[in-house]
Design a binder for these strands. Structure first.
Lengths: 336, 336
DNA sequence: CTGAAAGCGCTTACAG
DNA sequence: CTGAAAGCGCTTACAG
């Protein structure tokens, strides 16, 4: 199979071939301007003939730069193998942006304490120039620990702990208000909610928006808590139906749980939206294909991931602000 | 924000503090056995007090090992932002396995020629000890080019080009046969197919299994081609219905397209499975939540990703075989 | 078992 | 603009 890995040519070899010093080769390779065109030409063709590619370990040993960014995904073990479509979108978008900026992305899972320790050591080992956190739960000590090491950090979504980090978030409270407001405006009287995990700010904020809006309308809340998976949404819906068979609307804190709720409603013989109106949150692609198509709140995932990368890559002094909250938008389809 | 990044302690510092040579510190840190317990103890506490973490660039400069593996995702530009649940699952599973083996995973998107060149340079630059390819299309020259550099390579799924690479695949032909066989056994007479992209072996093989089975039953094929997205499945279903309004079953080459087909069927007023039976492929989580729940062929994603990692990490001489094809399983639910 | 020393492949002041 | 030289932080034969 694998051909013997032949030794790669070094800077030295290129210098010898081009009959210049190693310093000059280094300058040419790194695009320094001040090099005589003739030498540059000689170096370039030597590089070409030899197939020279700089050894990155040697380079980063002296420059103390790695051109790598860690993308840390801290999912709880139970969700590690779920197929959250947001994961895919955030990871791809961030990778795209990072690659465009010439950075490598190192993906790290940090769902267990051991994995977290691993991330900390890795970052402490100087492997990366910055760290991006996605889906942080509860009192995660990692971001703070890393920020304290002097390594730039940013978070996708507001961190659950009150640590002073830059982050890109979307307006979860406002989005939930739009959703519930829409339900109320449609004449629904008994609006339940399937909340997300309460150790994540997205879960907290979306629930807060729901409570706000109901309170302002002088209505009572009816809540079941899920964990953002379809199964938990289906189960929460069962509880809700048992708790109040008369409910005529439900706000699910994400689309996946809304899909689970739709499933339960169907099994229970409730028509959507006639008997029960349903609104989700995120506007994942699947929302257009449910029966009926799901009314939901659009979560600007791509923009948010892009902003996150920019926050990390832009030197702190150039920021007008270090926390960005993107607006959401209600997308009305047929489920409410 | 970021505290000034304080200089990290070096091996040298640890040696000084523990009053031993640098060589000894190196041995202890790398877990070499032959070290006097007393010195080892001294080194360990010096490491602890100083918070020493080895500089990986320096280490890899001499060992020529990076402990990193590249995970290359070659999606065509159009699918880059789709929310393919398999992407998430494969990436997470592979990361998990790789991390358990002490490897870092560098995620690289290779959807464009430029991005591919970037991957090639990166690997040529000695950044990684191995490369895993996911979702390879058509005549992708990258895997061959990298294998020729002497870097270990493995592919998730059989490569589309006849290059001699190790890979982990699932039995796509057999799975399609099970699906179509089930439809035929259920008494369906006019079985259409929504095929996947024909520049991917999964697309080719699943179509081949469909054709096989129909031919053996002396039935005519009716095919529309999609690209594994829900939208393409919906559109293909429209074509199929126009081409033969009398069809009574459809085999979709993946669940996402099956979901699209279900959507179109619903809009067209066809009942599933009464009027038209539908079978998908993959058994993604969403398959349990469609209306009706989707009968499909289980694609052992987790096992396949795990095998892929093992193939890459195990020295070639220890392999009994370098190509593994995992069995599929028909999961009967309500759509067929 | 331990240490002195060479060397991995680069970059970067410093002279010229 | 160019080159000689030092140095980045490790590991690893080689002696002892």
């Amino acid at each position: 199979m694998a051909a013997p890995r032949r030794p790669r040519p070094t800077l030295e070899a290129v210098a010898a071939r081009a009959r210049v010093s190693r310093a000059t080769v280094s300058r040419v390779v790194n695009g320094r301007t001040s090099v005589d065109p003739r030498m540059r030409e000689a170096v370039l063709s030597a590089v070409d003939e030899l197939g020279y590619v700089p050894n990155s370990a040697a380079r980063s040993l002296v420059t103390r730069q790695t051109d790598s960014i860690a993308l840390v995904v801290s999912e709880p073990p139970t969700r590690v193998f779920s197929d959250d479509p947001l994961f895919s979108l955030v990871v791809r978008t961030a990778s795209n942006e990072l690659e465009a900026a010439g950075k490598q992305v190192v993906l790290m899972l940090a769902g267990s304490p051991r994995a977290q320790a691993r991330v900390e050591d890795y970052v402490a080992g100087g492997h990366v120039d910055g760290v991006m956190f996605v889906s942080m739960h509860g009192a995660d000590p990692l971001p703070g620990a890393i920020a304290r090491m002097g390594v730039p950090v940013v978070s996708y979504g507001r961190p659950a702990v009150a640590v002073d980090l830059p982050y890109a978030d979307n307006d979860n409270v406002g989005g939930a208000r739009q959703a519930v407001g829409h339900l109320l405006a449609g004449g629904r009287r008994r609006v339940a909610a399937i909340a997300g995990p309460q150790d994540m700010t997205a879960g907290q904020d979306r629930l807060a928006g729901y409570r706000d809006t109901l309170a302002a309308a002088d209505r009572r809340a009816l809540v079941a808590v899920g964990d953002f998976t379809r199964d938990s949404g289906a189960e929460a819906m069962r509880h809700l139906l048992a708790d109040d068979p008369g409910l005529d609307a439900v706000f699910a804190a994400n689309d996946l749980m809304a899909i689970g709720a739709l499933h339960t409603l169907r099994r229970a013989g409730r028509r959507v939206p006639d008997d029960v109106a349903v609104v989700g949150f995120d506007d994942i692609e699947a929302a257009r294909f449910t029966d009926p198509p799901l009314t939901t709140v659009r979560h600007p995932v791509v923009e948010q991931a892009t902003v996150m990368v920019r926050l990390l890559l832009t030197p702190a002094e150039q920021h007008d602000r270090t926390r960005v909250v993107l607006p959401t938008e209600l997308v009305v389809r047929e489920s409410a």
